[in-house]
């Protein structure tokens, strides 16, 4: 059985296809890079996987269970955890409590949530700001915090939308190490990134989108050397 199966997913905005009959599978334990020029539909695709957008067609199946119509919070509990391109944290509660919201929301009891949150704070070097309201954190710290909330309960699959963009290198390093370690332990990821060296280094496999469709899917090195992919990126930059 395929771990995550995306079949014919499509989304139109005012007649224009943002995502156009996209098919792909993710196997358990894979770390798949999702690349493509700006506006190619990566975030829209993630929105349909996490339930934030209802697709106009197609299905999403996780471990044999169709989740296409499941509301966001039930999909999160089914293990599809998502990090947004524009950071979303709870500004007026503390860093620690941000993690506790995720822990309790995903079904942990109070004690386990606290234990888990403390461990994550340590691992992400956020312990010194645990008691600060998240609204007072730096942009990078907020990103780290949102990243952390994806892992309060090990997700079935983590969908990360540009986690490394506009983040201080030291924090990028923390997140990168975290992803590599979890991946080594079998955690499944779908990683959207603009940063080609990062994708090249972290992902064995990549999917490249362009104008809502999948342009190439396979070994990252092959995808990045695919003339159509190079062309799409150059075209995107020229635009």
């Amino acid at each position: 059985m395929t771990f995550l199966k995306v079949k014919g997913l499509e989304k139109r905005f005012g007649g224009r296809h943002a995502v156009d009959s996209v098919h792909f599978d993710v196997a358990a334990g894979e770390l798949v890079g999702l690349i493509g020029p700006n506006g190619s539909g990566k975030t829209t695709l993630l929105n349909m996987l996490s339930g934030h957008l209802a697709p106009d067609g197609g299905t999403v199946t996780l471990e044999g269970r169709e989740v296409t119509r499941l509301p966001v919070h039930r999909r999160a509990r089914a293990g599809i955890l998502r990090m947004f391109q524009l950071t979303r944290v709870f500004d007026r509660v503390s860093t620690l409590d941000n993690l506790l919201v995720a822990g309790r929301g995903l079904g942990l009891n109070a004690r386990d949530a606290l234990t888990r949150a403390r461990a994550l704070l340590d691992e992400l070097s956020l312990s010194p700001v645990a008691a600060l309201d998240a609204g007072r954190l730096s942009g990078g710290q907020r990103k780290l915090l949102e990243f952390g909330t994806c892992f309060m309960v090990p997700p079935r699959i983590a969908l990360l939308d540009e986690p490394f963009a506009a983040v201080h290198p030291s924090m990028r390093e923390i997140m990168g190490r975290f992803v590599r370690e979890r991946h080594a332990l079998g955690q499944t990821f779908l990683l959207v990134s603009h940063d080609m060296p990062v994708v090249r280094e972290m992902c064995e496999r990549s999917v490249c989108m362009n104008a809502g469709s999948i342009l190439a899917d396979g070994n990252t090195e092959d995808v990045l050397n695919d003339p159509a992919v190079i062309e799409a990126y150059l075209g995107g930059e020229a635009a």
Binding site: F90, V93, L106
Partner: peptide, 18 residues
Amino acid sequence: LFLQAVRDDEVAAASRGV
């Protein structure tokens, strides 16, 4: 926790199972 999460960001709250 959940009420304050809803107050601060409904989308993020739902995304964490609330």
